[in-house]
Structures are given as C-alpha cells and as structure tokens.
Design a protein around this nucleic acid. Sequence first.
DNA 1: GCCTAGCACTCGATAGAGGCGAGTGCTAAA
DNA 2: TTTAGCACTCGCCTCTATCGAGTGCTAGGC
Lengths: 347, 347
Amino acid sequence: MKGLVRGERSRRVLEAVILEYIKGGVPVGSRAIAKKYGLSVSPATIRNVMADLEELGLLYQPHTSAGRVPTELGLRVYIDAILKIQQLSVADREQIRQSYRGGVSRVEGLLQETSKVLSSFSKQAGVVLTPRLSHTVFKRIEFVRLRTSMVMTILVSQAGIVHNTVFEIKEDVSQEELDKYGRYLNDMLQDLALHQVKARLLEEMQKEKVLFDRLLSKALELSQKALQENIENSELYIGGRTNLLDNPEFADVEQMRRIFNAFEEKSKIIDLLDKSMSAGGVNIFIGSESELLDMESVSFITSPYASGDELLGTLGVIGPTRMDYSRIIPLVDYTAKLLSKMLEETF
Amino acid sequence: MKGLVRGERSRRVLEAVILEYIKGGVPVGSRAIAKKYGLSVSPATIRNVMADLEELGLLYQPHTSAGRVPTELGLRVYIDAILKIQQLSVADREQIRQSYRGGVSRVEGLLQETSKVLSSFSKQAGVVLTPRLSHTVFKRIEFVRLRTSMVMTILVSQAGIVHNTVFEIKEDVSQEELDKYGRYLNDMLQDLALHQVKARLLEEMQKEKVLFDRLLSKALELSQKALQENIENSELYIGGRTNLLDNPEFADVEQMRRIFNAFEEKSKIIDLLDKSMSAGGVNIFIGSESELLDMESVSFITSPYASGDELLGTLGVIGPTRMDYSRIIPLVDYTAKLLSKMLEETF
DNA sequence: GCCTAGCACTCGATAGAGGCGAGTGCTAAA
DNA sequence: TTTAGCACTCGCCTCTATCGAGTGCTAGGC
C-alpha cells in the first residue's frame, strides 16, 4: 500500500489535501495548499501532482472547476502510510479521566458513560457494545419466585454484568426450594465460562437422572431454561447522536436518515463491532469498507476492551469519513484501555 | 372552552381545517373545505367563518395569501370539544397484541418493545418511562461479593424490576456472610414499599445498635448504602425516532436537532412524563403546553400504566402537533392498558 | 340579513438569466 | 522540471419575471 504514493512531495500533497479537507469540509484547491503548507512550489506544480494523485484514485474532483477531495482509498493510504499516530496529550487524558468522576456504580452505567465520553471528546457519536454474556465467566445465579409458577432468574457474571429472565414453570416451587437450587448451582458452576455452562449442565443432568434426585434435576432444568436465550445478545449504547447533525455533509436529510435508522436498528452496527472485537487494537472502517452498512461517507474507529484477559466488547466512534483521525484514533485507543482498567479494578 | 366556538358551522369548519391540515401538512384554503366537506356553502362563506375563527385565535394565516393553519389553541379546542374519541378497531387491537408475540422475558424488554409498538403504530416516536424503583414494592435483595471489598447489591421489586449497584466496603466480607445479610433483610423487608424501606432500615438500625449484633447492623448498613442512590431514577425508552424524520415540518434541521437533543438529554422528557403520571388517563400536551421543552410544533400524548394498583410509569407518543390525534389517542390508551395487563399477569 | 359571485391584490414558490469567483488544464517560456 | 499566464468550466448567488393559490372586499341576489 505504501508504495502507491511514490515521492515525498506526492505524500505531502495528499496529506495537505486531507488535512485541509478535514478542517474545512470543502474541496481544496491548489492555491490553498501552496500557500498554507509551505511546499515552496507554485500552485501549478501542485496541480500536476494532484492530477497524478487523482489518476491513482486517491483524490477526486466533484466537478471540473472544483478543488480535490480525498477518496476512501486516499484516506486509507493516509491513515496507513502517512499519519503518525501520537499519544493523547497528558491534559486530554486527565480530562477524560475526570469525566468519570462522580463514581459509577454499575457496569451498565459505566459503559453508557463511556459512550458519552467518546462522543463529547470526538464531537461525533460514541458507541459501546456491551459484553456478551456468553463471553463472560459465571459468578452467581439466583432464582426469585415472583408469583405462582413464575420464576425470575438472575445471572451475574464475574465482570459484574447482571442479566435477568422471567419464565413460567409447570409446577409451582417455593422460594425456599429455589434458594436450594441456587446454592447447588452456584457451587457447581463457579468460575466456569458461561459458554461452558450449558455443556456442564447437560453433563450434570445425565448424572442426576441416574441418581433420581428430583430437587437437583429440577434445578438443572430451570437453569437450562434461563440460559437458553439471550446470553448471545449484546446491547449497544450510543452517545452523542446529535453531534452528527453538526457535520455539514449530513445536512442532507437522506444521509442522516440512513444513519439514524442504523442507530435504531442497531443490529448492523452490533455485527460490525462484534466482528472487529477479535481483531484487537484500533480498527478503522472508512466509508464503504464497512460493507454491512450502505453508508458512504461514514467512518468507524473501534477498539476492543477487556477485563483482565477476558475480551468483553468493543467501543468506538462513528462519524463522517471526514473526521479528525489524528485525534480520534488515540482517543478511542486510550478510552478502551482506560475502560478496561476500570472494569478490572472495580468489577 | 366549548363556548368558544359558537355555532355548528364554525365547529365543522374548524374540524375540517384541522383534519385537512393533519392530512396534508400545508395551510388549507376555503376552496378545499367547501369542496371536500360538503358543507354546501360557497368558499366565500367559509372565508368569513375562517376570519371569525382567526379572530378567536383558533386559526392563523402564515401570510396574507395562504390558507389557514390551526393554532395550538385551535387544536386544543378541537380535541376537547369536537373530537369524539373512538375505540380502536378490533383489527388494530389484535394487531397490537400480535406485536408482543414471541414472548418477552424481562420487564425491560417488555417496556422497550412497547416503545417500538407505539412508534410503529403511530408512525411517530414512542416513549416508555420505566418505573421508579422507589414506587415499587420490595421483593428481594441479594448481595454478591465480586472481589475483595467489592460488593454488588441486587434489588428486585415485586413488579419484576431488577436493579444493581456495586460499591466498595471498608472491610471485606465473605459471601457466606453476605448471604446471611440477604436472608435477614428479605424477611424484614417483605412487602414493604421501597420508599418505606429506607425509614424501616433506619428504625431497625436504632434497635440493632442497642443489641450490638454486629452481623445485623452490618447488613443494615450495606443495604442502606445500596438504596442510597438511584431508586428515584427512571429510564426512558424511545422507539422510532426516525419516524419523526418523515414529517415534512421537521425537514428544517434546526427543529429536528432540538428534538433529538431532548431525546439525548432525556431528563426533560422524563420530567414531563413523570408529571403526567399521576394525572391519570390520557394526557395531551400540544406544542408549548409542555412548558418544559422549548419546542413548538411538538405534541405529546401520554398515559400512565400500572400493575394492579401500583402506578408504575408513563408511556406515550411524541410527534408533530400535526398528528393524527383521533388514531393515536386511542392507541396510547389501549397500549397503556394492555401493558398494564401484561405486567400484572406476568410479573 | 345572510350568502355568493366576482375581482383586485398579496405573496410564496419556481424558473431563468447574468455575473462572480474559485479552480482547473494547457501552453509556452524560464 | 517548474512556473507564469490565460482561457475555460461550473457551482453559487442574486435579481427578475411569472404563476397561481388564496385572500378580503364589494355589490348584488335570495
């Protein structure tokens, strides 16, 4: 990829166009670059270089008499080969940490807060994918009898994630008995990864069948039911949607509607974030690179977060392809690490 | 209020203007009314009537050569004195009930689903305010030791609402001991309204201080901590935001931004819904009547929902002042009742 | 006295014309 | 290889003219 742009000058021109475009959002002309980026060559020369870059597919002209705009490929090259990603400044980090003051007392709250932090520092939308239950480690299960034949199961993972399900059972069971089930299961499932729990339950059920212990087999059945669904699902927290309205390129309502539809639908974004979870490190999807979404001119910058060595979820920023990558990439990176640390320390 | 519009004809003209305006979204002229609403008078006569209605402040003219548009007051009069609210058709009801098929296994899910149902049937945004914990009845409390000195409290209300808090304690406590706390508190607090729990705990703490029972006083202290915060808060589920984008009057971005900001902020909407909870029955706020929000041209139609005789929360539809009240009012009403019934039956 | 036909008037919306200016590509000279 | 110069393109803005929906008013009819 790097070889695509031969020559120091070409690279600097590409960079200049992109920086200028990110700043202004309008096509940038040869004049502006010659002036502001001290390349000490005339606009005419810049024009020649630009024409070359256009031929390579890195820039493009909305119409004959307009300046140049970077293409997706141009941005990709810029990010991969030109942009030097710096650390976030100490002041920025401090400010981010400050945003979490006030104490967050639930994982859900912490994640939601994080989506807000991401959005407010990026001036774009921030997203946080909640951990899949199935990826976490069992901590505790609890049954509560709501009323006749109605039982609520509460499942707590080691990472502090709480999940509840309500379902009907054939014959009524007293709370005392439910408590017994709980104690039995809590002992049995301690420290198991949740995706192993199901197998373990089945295995155990075989044994119990043989032993004809009604109490235990009932407990196993119940917990099976509770785990049946939903442990594969993730939630998605989205903060700062309205920031996107400030981007001039979304003034056109049609574009906006598509993004907000995706926010409403969520599943597509969840898929994308999910996919980029295992990739590790900061991931960047420029425009149509995120094939899932039929959204040109929207970019994702994502990074997974974890607690200890449990990969939990993904967070990121959604904005126009024209966003300040040099600021937001380190922001996403730092936020993911900070969140991981907080999760590890508290939960 | 009813006296404002004297005469059958005036009333019919007002109604016609409003119906036509709701349908089309553009100012409606005398010609259209004379034609479509079979009043068997000429446009000129209609014009006279309209002029009267304008003087009364029920209609207004965007500019000299435009038709009339209802004012907020006009809509208010229409709703209070003219509109006859019908029942939802059997087919509609059936369809709404159908939307809930697929079984909902958590209160949160049920409420979220409801916001979607409201939005999809109204073609506007649907909102559901979750119950305040403090308004519900205690069912169960549970402590889970996450790691050294970190304890999670899980609180379950009779209505099936689960709430968790994580906090640090000064000295570590074993899970066994936490379980004892739980059993003690569960006995003590059974069937108490949550807003009474706090008082009860304090009261109990007095006794225990005297008795010097370390275990119990510790339990009380813990639960106090857990209840300290958050039980006064409500969540807000919003479904179908994007439906609002289809309303031509929100094509203007500024207006849209304000609404979406309110969605992001949530607190103002929560306040409004909260206020209308105790009012009972269907509530309608037209435009600036919802003083909290600086949003003209946005209306709220709300109704509280309950489980048994516990008032739990409020749900409703948010849309432009120009929305189909005759359809949405019964929709909101029916949905609230249906939700109440489902909550009662299941949780 | 109420209703209606007719008419002049208002005013937003739409379309076209003209001018402006940013930016280009090309050519020729340094 | 670079640059100055220049003709050319084309989106954008402004101005103007036209159109038409809708009004208010007046005068005549039932």
